[in-house]
Nucleic acid binder design. Structure first.
Lengths: 205, 205
DNA sequence: CGTCGAGTTGGCCCTTGGGCCAATAGGTAC
DNA sequence: GTACCTATTGGCCCAAGGGCCAACTCGACG
């Protein structure tokens, strides 16, 4: 149903690795199989849209460890689906609390795996969309001078130019100029849009 | 550490019920023990700040069923902590996916239960705060006339009075009046606040 | 039929926002 | 030192927001 979505598959059992790879490839996914968690982490690229399907218990690095590492990144969370042959409830609960998409026990039903990967794909797409939106906004805010940024926060707070001038120890005219340049740089025309942007970036506080 | 926080405790085992009750009461919580899921659901009051601690497997209504019922409400989700003597991974995963705070296996460590209830309390408080905030805002929006509401959406969209007038087939003066009355009724003074309110209420679309 | 709320509109006037042009001052980079 | 960026300020003028008072229409309610 989809393509250009990469599934990072990590399982120390070559048989499982092969079987799941075939299954997911048949579904149209781009699969990258790893029998070693370490190698996976080295080659893993957060820039690629995709999800991780991890065996819970592996020698060296177990699935939960990997999940933690993947989560640390920069706010972006690589969606993780766990598969396991032998595990326990506390482990599954910990995984889910940490944000796992699903926690499947072997024997794994194809349908369950597909659904999990599908949800992972949706979440990944959404989080990428959000993330890139925030990035582009932050990039624009980054081009603002310190003064312009101050004015921005005051405008978002709903203060009048005159009041902002008072707060910043200058005159209204100066604020108008900063304000105008600020809006220009942000590529925004209305205060409404400015407020929405500021809300998303948490610039209100 | 806290009080006036109610723990609805539901377990068909009288012994467990008694033990957990004592434990939670000692911690300062107001505990309402039920050995019957049905009775619990009948007496349950979403208006009371608290959480539910449910046994997963019970005759009649199992824990997951109860969780589903508690979730249906009106957008408010009663935080649920599961306790179980005998369960399996798929069940725990389903519970966590459905938003459970935690899924504890017996023998339950006091510390785990306390932490779970504590997190449930935090979540409950937060969701109540959010909910009441939304309610009061919606109540105010409810006092608006249809026309005022239309104007609201246009203002939030960043449109000028003149443009709004064009869209609504009237003149700028009329929009000014609606706009003024609208702000007055909402108890809001700045466009910035209006936008933030609209965002929270999803009035932008 | 009279009252009332909702929707309209006009006029008047003041405050704000914002664009354009010009100019000054301090600091930094080449 | 010259060029450039950032911050400032002034003047001029026009557009937009918004308060106050008054008035009109229409449909619903008694």
């Amino acid at each position: 149903m989809t393509d250009k979505f990469t599934v990072y598959l990590v399982d120390d059992d070559p048989g499982v690795l092969k079987a799941l790879s075939r299954l997911l490839r048949a579904k149209g996914h781009d699969v990258k199989p790893y029998s070693s968690p370490q190698v996976f982490l080295e080659e893993h690229d957060v820039g690629v849209p995709g999800c991780a399907v991890l065996d819970v218990s592996m020698p060296g690095l177990d699935g939960l460890e990997i999940q933690r590492v993947l989560t640390v990144a920069n706010g972006y969370h690589r969606p993780v689906v766990f598969v396991t042959g032998k595990s326990d409830i506390p482990t599954s609960v910990r995984a889910m609390k940490a944000g796992a998409i699903d926690f499947l026990t072997k024997p794994i039903k194809d349908k369950d795996l597909f659904e999990a990967v599908s949800r992972a794909e949706a979440r990944d797409a959404e989080s990428r969309r959000l993330h890139s939106e925030l990035e582009s906004m932050q990039a624009k805010v980054g081009t603002l001078t310190p003064r312009e940024r101050e004015v921005l926060t005051h405008v978002v707070a709903g203060r009048l130019n005159k009041q902002i001038a008072g707060d910043l120890g200058t005159v209204e005219k100066t604020i108008k100029v900063h304000r105008s340049r600020m809006m220009e740089k942000l590529g925004i025309r209305t205060v409404a849009d400015l407020v929405r942007m500021a809300e998303k970036l948490n610039l209100s506080r």
